[in-house]
Design a protein around this nucleic acid. Sequence first.
RNA 1: GCACCCAUAGCUCAGUUGGAUAGAGCGUUUGACUACGAAUCAAAAGGUCGGAAGUUCGAGUCUUCCUGGGUGCACCA
Length: 679
Amino acid sequence: MLLSIQEKIRTRIRESIAKNFDLTLQNLVLEHPPKVSLGDFAAPVAFELAKQLKAATGAKQNPRQLAEKIREDVLDLPEVERVEVAGAGYLNFFLKRSDVFLRSLQPQTEPATPRIGGKLIVEHTSVNPNKAAHIGHLRNAVLGDTLVRLLRACGETVEVQNYIDNTGVQVADVVVGFQHIEKKTLDDIKAIPGKFDDYCWDLYSKVGRFYEEDKARLELRAAALHSIEAGTGETAEIAEHVAMRILQCHLDTMWRLGISYDVMPRESEVLHLHFWDAAFERLKATGSIVLETEGRNKGCWVLPAEGDEAAAGEETEHDADKILVRSNGTVNYTGKDIAYHLWKLGQLGMDFHYRPFFTYPDGHQVWISTTETPQAEISHEAFGNGAAYFNVIDVGQSYTQDFVKKGILAVSEESARVRVARSSHVNYEKVALTPASCIELGFELSEEDRKRTVINMAGRKGLGVKVDDLINRLEAAALKRVAEHEVDRAQKKPGTELTEQEQVIASKAIAVGALRYFLLKFTRNTVIAFDFKEALAAEGESGVFLLYAIRRTYAIFEEANARGLQTDNLAQELADNLAQIPDYFSGAEGDDLWSLVNLALRLEEVLQEAAEILEPARLAKYAFQLAQQFSAFYNTKNNRILQQTDPMRQKVLFGIVKLTQRSLESAGKVLGIEVPARM
RNA sequence: GCACCCAUAGCUCAGUUGGAUAGAGCGUUUGACUACGAAUCAAAAGGUCGGAAGUUCGAGUCUUCCUGGGUGCACCA
């Protein structure tokens, strides 16, 4: 609702400037003043206008006078109470608080209108299916999943893809471990009980040492890789079993955090369904790639780097061109990724076959690619052919991703270029470990490492924090706290305490909230130095605080209900007494109340902004700020709702809590944070 | 060598297309529980925004240079 008011104000200002000064301003900034006592919106437009006028006429202008002039044209907006010129020339808008408050209390029905439109494809997680997922993988998944929720909250249609590299080196290494270290057959492997991803986590680090002891053993990897790519023989069968079983482990782990997928294209199908061959022909036909006839890349097909002509012929340590096809004729990762992305944007003219892979507890089904044509028609939605893609991949891949985008752009039809243009690589920094965390994990650190502030995780060494382990620890900590609380509850309000099973469910929600918020509060380009103490913290800027605030809004209505107070018809009751409401929003106390309402109503704006810059942290910070402001409200003596003596003021306060609750809950939902039954 | 990212309070981080007095959390100090549950709140101390120059009415934010960290640049994926 604030958004539409802002739009009206902008339009009025533009009209005024056009009328009075015959100018159009590109960017019309409308910001929130530091305090509500300075207004709800501030336009620093007069400063910019003065600059433009000076440039046009040469005459120096006083911003305050210009602001006064514009002010006269924006006074009569229905939602605006008054407009003031402040400071050196700010135009400050004050809303009609009680009107806006009442209108906001009405149930919101209109869905958000998508800004991009069409089907957007978000790819995230894409973990190598060869060992348990660690906290770094989780940052990817949580960022991606939150982005999906964010775009959907903004009215977009989103398809979630999880790309499975089931034919790569990482899977091959684990297969080598099974076959050559443990001497296991496929049946032996199938019989391994317990958590298979944990088993492979340990095995994978053994393989790393196995190669180090004797470099000649690397040939075992090459041989395994070859069989896996060909897709025949026991080695390939083991690889298939390992990859799909680990994939299921990953899906289970991610589901614990509310993360799910729609479709999982596999690298094996990109190869066997000849996606690359089609892409290759297109790249050659458009002259986008060249076959090197001499130099270090002799015999390779390369995608030339930009502005490379000057350096052509010079042999440097690093060649800027990107190889897509090796001199032995095989395609590498970048090439396969170009083919995959052409499919994503509906530019390949081919499709995978699909089979259902897994049905989530909520009934949602995730599909996986397959080479075989299904015997019977299995109906599923059409996958791929998106209007844009967003790839959540760590920043280390920026260089390759640039080439992928360049490749697709080169062969896309003119009409499809806009799809490529608005697509992007959503990059983020890694999760590293603090030296203290490494020690806690039982790893010996060298002198050098001890001095570093962060230490990179290393799957090959088995150095990392496994997601399931971390969730388990968080759940245990939360359960302990909840159980203590319920003992207290049983004494104070007998008969209302949670059962043991309910306590477990509540703890799970708390753990998920804590973990997701921890990963989302950092902006994407910040390296997270993972620290157990910080991640397990249930105080301060944490998901627990956020949940606690929402829980408090619930408690207020529950208690009101228990005392027989009606709160279901607030909007109508307040509307009937409209004349009295302005009193409650005036004065210093009224400013405080209004600033909470004002902040709660900004959710819509924050959602849009976060989606625009693809930055979930923006929303996380907002949610925390709102929770914090609500807590301050809650702890103010005069605001103790159930003790109010003035029934109208009580209704106003209930309304404020309702609005805050609505925004906090919505923000929480987008962040993937569910409210537990009790804390 | 080339490219990209980062540098803000003791620590970990925000800082809205350049805007009003640079904000949080943790830590430190001092207070507040006799039921809208303190996983909380109130308050204090703590900053030449890495350095220098520039653009601007206005710079933590933009430009250039410098210093100090991190990452990428494989016929790996």
